[in-house]
Design a binder for these strands. Structure first.
Length: 939
RNA sequence: GGGCGUGUAGCUCAGUUGGUUAGAGCACGCGCUUGAUAAGCGCGGGGUCACUGGUUCAAGUCCAGUCACGCCCA
């Protein structure tokens, strides 16, 4: 007779094969058709809020795997908070303005023959470009299983966004934060335009390398020697930098005494042909402060300052000539020491006299008009300077110098660094007697930074940062609504800015570029204006960090779902990469503090960066030859593995450090996924005939083994929740996968098969275990839902008696079915005996004495003290070991020992146990007593 | 060059206030099972805790330095 049909073998349509790549999109479509995100929000209406405000990615290109990591982390947290009963809205955003888009668009326009497009036309094309990539990225983010208001994201190009941004800006203008000053920018002479970093190409170039004497004031016959490869910047020289940690040598060369770095002296002497020099004495760098020198050809003197961060000892002389209008180090030093940002060069790249210094102190009149632009490797300006140096015997040595130098991508000519008028936010602006920088540092103290070193990092950044240069000479951005009067003086007024905000909110900011200055002024002029009348309008746009940094006003305070109660602009959390300590976290903090009086976030969570299998940053050069197989886009990984594998991979690593992305790593995570999925499948497949309303066993009637697993599970839940609460998703991953591998798969699931398959379907013991499985599968679905957004939802559909259509609509309350300490102690003792017995069973298997454990009989002997718990729980221990027979003999021997025998009796055809009762029934001669009873009982 | 971090088995992670032969899961090797079966179970090998020096009766754990890697700045 075939007794197999009398078993309760597992069955389920929850497939073993996940086929995520094909099946996830179907589920996604159902979620969207049902409005799952809206359902979740509606269900949590009125609940305590948890607001995570999305940092906007740049609307350009495909979603990079690093960007996907960020979005997935946010989604895991939002889903978890929602599961725990919070109302956790998520409104994604995009950063739309900025140079990379403008650059691409102008390139494309040029290729298609639209050479001389005006700003308004470029901006329209930029908006179309941004919208296109928002569409692309939105689908890629959605595909990852990220739930949110994808149909109503926030865009920094929205009219309302721009208007709020300008209103915040107006508040800053009103408080006196904003001023006009000078800062060096890249300048292309033929194009007559400022360039951004991205528009600069480095090419090999030959520059004149010159060593120049600067005579010391009060020390006749003594000079320091500086080195430069841009002689044309010497007319703008206002200081000399040294390194206070270096040692310098005072050397006699002929009649003169010269000072250079001690370390570089031999090299300099060789270059300059100082055959018979003699070291007079050495000088500590620290002793150079306070010295003064005469400019080699201008009627002025300059001072020496320490520049340890940029004066190096590998090239040059250990002295760097400082022209604050022509270099970034120079500029920063100049700002620090209060020097004018002097840049005697006009838009055409010709020397001029400026109003920064008295004309008498500036370059000789003969130099004025000389062009810096190089022709055939020479420039008028360099030649004029070299001539002047030779005439005055200040030129020690000159040679050609080959190096990589920035060039304009368009004209291919060497660029120059040139100070220009820009708008700034004054970081040390004093309001009510306290400097803004100080207030910012105080506010940083009030914010929770996770990990905590984020605090020191942003503190250092805020302490050291210079004033914020907020203007850009670009078209694709929010226009700065400033005007200039007939004398070129800037007009920036808070009332005008607010009027502009209103105008832009109605018509869009393109109107600024479409209408002439006079018309704009007519629309924006405040009533009762007594200031100067404008002659022209500003064509500058705001730094894009002002755009995204204004989102506390433009998004958090304005979106009903996000708005805070006591502080409308403040939310619970910002979650971005650690580079944002200097980026978005800082711009958002400064703007919100200046405009609203406090930070826009209560907690800032940061993650590390993607690195490759060698723990090095992902670089394009490694792609292809021997490196990565494919571009590191989210789509590439999702198409190969499915979103849930990518999500599980994100959760598997401690994101506070670097995150390793490699095929090998993801393949391992996929293995873990399979074991999680199989555990769920096992549980579901054994619940096919279980209706919790009808069959559930009350907790107090559950069998001891079931109580044990539920105790373990309760503990796991506490640990997993604690890990989620600490944002340690990798701990969730570890705890869950280990629990599934050990407590479930290796122990509970394995042990309980006998009961589930062979006991009568509706027996108390089987129903007890099904009750436990039902709790377990429901709990696992909840625990996994934030991470395995698709799979947990899929499994949930098969849970009998489920209370909600989607796992994401559930709330997660921890199960609290704990054992008493005494009961746990007993189980610990049983497991100790199990551990002692397993190797003995293995030996018997190796010796071919038994095959599976059910073939065996185990005998435990040992002192009564050690075996007492087991003696009272022989049947539990037998189940744990999956053997047919087990005996405990307390009082035999001084140590616990385990022996294996071939089990007695015959193997029951139905349950495969070895039992002496097999054969006792004439009706079922191949069955044991238990199975005979089961088979006789009608179903 | 400066600031902030990281460095424990092949991989991902645990290692409480310094205290017995450094743990887990996965992967790997060898078996068992074939009633979770493109599954499941058992056993086993594998680490000079980046390196060097120091404090201590005792250091993966504290201190100093070095190296490598990441982010930011220069």
């Amino acid at each position: 007779m075939d007794y197999k049909n009398s078993l309760n073998l597992p069955r389920t349509d929850f497939s073993m094969k996940a086929d995520l790549v094909a099946r996830e999109p179907e589920r996604l479509r159902r979620w969207e058709a049902a409005g799952l995100y809206q359902q979740i929000q509606a269900q949590r209406a009125g609940a305590k809020k948890f607001v995570l405000h999305d940092g906007p990615p740049f609307a350009n290109g495909d979603v990079h795997i690093g960007t996907a990591l960020n979005k997935i982390l946010k989604d895991i947290l939002v889903k978890y908070k929602s599961l725990r009963g919070y109302q956790a809205p998520y409104i994604p955003g995009w950063d739309c303005h900025g140079l990379p888009i403008e650059f691409k668009v102008t390139q494309e326009m040029r290729k298609s023959g639209q050479a001389a497009a005006d700003a308004a036309a470029i901006r329209k094309a930029c908006e179309a470009y941004a919208q296109k990539y928002i569409g692309i990225q939105r689908e890629q983010f959605r595909r990852l299983g990220v739930l949110g208001e994808w149909d109503h994201p926030y865009l920094t190009l929205d009219k309302a966004y721009e208007a709020e941004e300008l209103r915040l800006f107006a508040d800053l203008v009103e408080q006196g934060f904003v001023y006009r000053g000078k800062k060096p920018v890249y300048w292309s002479i033929p194009c007559r335009t400022a360039l951004a970093e991205a528009e600069v190409e480095y090419q090999d170039h030959v520059s004149p390398s010159v060593y120049v004497k600067f005579r010391l004031v009060g020390h006749p016959g003594t000079s320091v020697v500086i080195w430069t490869t841009t002689p044309w910047t010497l007319p703008a020289n206002l200081a000399v930098a040294y390194n206070s940690t270096f040692s310098y040598s005072l050397v006699r060369v002929g009649e003169e005494e010269l000072i250079v770095s001690a370390l570089l002296l031999p090299a300099i002497a060789e270059k300059c042909g100082w055959s018979g020099y003699e070291i007079v004495r050495s000088l500590d760098g620290g002793h150079l402060s306070g010295l003064e020198y005469e400019h080699p050809f201008c009627q002025r003197t300059g001072r020496f300052f320490a520049g340890d961060s940029f004066v190096d000892n590998t090239t040059g002389t250990g002295f760097v000539h400082i022209a604050p209008g022509h270099g970034l180090d120079d500029y920063l030093l100049g700002m620090k020491e209060g020097l004018p940002i002097y840049s005697p060069v006009d838009d055409d790249g010709r020397f001029i006299h400026t109003s920064d210094l008295p004309v008498a102190q500036q370059m000789p009149a003969a130099m004025v008009g000389a062009s810096i632009l190089e022709k055939h490797g020479k420039s008028e300006a360099n030649e004029a300077v070299l001539h002047e140096l030779r005439v005055r015997k200040a030129l020690v040595h000159q040679e050609n110098y080959h190096h990589s130098y920035p060039h304009c991508w368009r004209s291919k000519t060497p660029i120059i660094f040139r100070a220009m008028d820009q708008w700034f936010i004054r970081v040390d602006h004093v309001v009510d007697g306290v400097s803004f920088r100080e207030r910012a540092l105080q506010e940083i103290e009030r914010v929770e930074w996770v990990p905590d070193w984020g605090r020191s990092r942003i503190e250092a950044a805020v302490k050291a940062r210079p004033d914020w240069c907020i203007s850009r000479q670009r078209s694709w951005g929010v226009p700065i609504p400033a005007f200039y009067d007939a004398h070129g003086q800037a007009i920036l007024d808070a009332r005008v800015v607010r009027n502009a905000a209103d105008l832009f909110e109605k018509h869009g900011s393109n109107i600024w570029f479409e209408q002439p200055a006079a018309e704009l002024w007519a629309a924006l002029k405040p009533p009762g204006w007594t200031g100067p009348e404008p002659a022209s309008k500003s064509t500058d746009t705001l730094d894009v960090w002002i755009d995204s940094g204004s989102s506390s006003r433009a998004v958090i305070a304005r979106r009903e779902a996000l708005r805070g109660t006591s502080r409308p602009h403040q939310c619970d959390m910002y979650l971005e990469g650690s580079d944002q300590h200097r980026g978005w976290f800082q711009s958002s903090l400064l703007l919100s503090l200046a405009g609203h009086g406090s930070a826009p976030f209560r907690t800032v969570l940061t993650h590390g960066f993607m690195v490759d299998a060698d723990r090095e940053k992902i670089s394009k050069s490694k792609q292809g030859q021997g490196g990565y197989e494919k571009p590191q886009t989210a789509e590439a990984y999702v198409k190969k593995w499915g979103a849930d594998i990518v999500r599980l991979w994100v959760s598997s690593q401690d994101f506070r450090n670097d995150i390793i992305v490699s095929e090998e790593r993801i393949a391992k995570v996929a293995e873990t996924y399979r074991s999680l999925r199989n555990a769920l499948r096992y549980q579901l497949s054994n619940l096919y005939d279980f209706d919790p309303a009808r069959d559930a066993v009350p907790a107090e009637q559950l069998t001891a083994l079931d109580r044990w697993i539920l105790d373990e599970f309760s503990r796991l839940e506490q640990e997993v929740m604690a890990a989620y609460d600490r944002y340690e998703f990798h701990v969730v991953y570890q705890k869950l996968s280990q629990f599934v591998a050990v407590e479930l798969s290796a122990i509970y699931h394995d042990v309980v098969k006998d009961r589930l398959y062979t006991d009568a379907a509706s027996s108390l013991r089987r129903r007890s275990t099904q009750t436990a499985l039902h709790w377990l599968v429901g709990g696992l679905c909840r625990m996994l839902a934030p991470i395995l957004a698709f799979t947990a939802d899929e499994a949930w559909e098969w849970v009998p008696g489920r209370s909600a259509g989607s796992v994401h609509l559930l709330s997660w309350e921890p199960l609290d079915l704990r054992l008493t300490e005494a009961d746990r102690a007993v189980w610990n003792a049983l497991f100790k005996l199990r551990e002692a017995a397993l190797p003995v069973l293995e030996e018997a298997r190796q010796a071919k004495q038994i095959g599976k454990a059910l073939d065996a009989q185990l005998v435990f002997t040992g002192p009564a003290s050690a075996l007492a718990p087991a003696a009272a729980r022989v049947e539990d221990l037998r189940e744990l070991l999956n053997v047919s027979q087990l005996e405990v003999r307390p009082g035999e021997g001084a140590e616990v020992s385990v022996t294996v025998h071939k089990a007695a009796g015959e193997k029951c055809e139905r349950c495969w146990h070895w039992e002496t009762s097999v054969g006792a029934s004439a009706e079922h001669p191949t069955l044991c007593r238990r199975c005979v009873e089961v088979v006789r009982t009608p179903a």
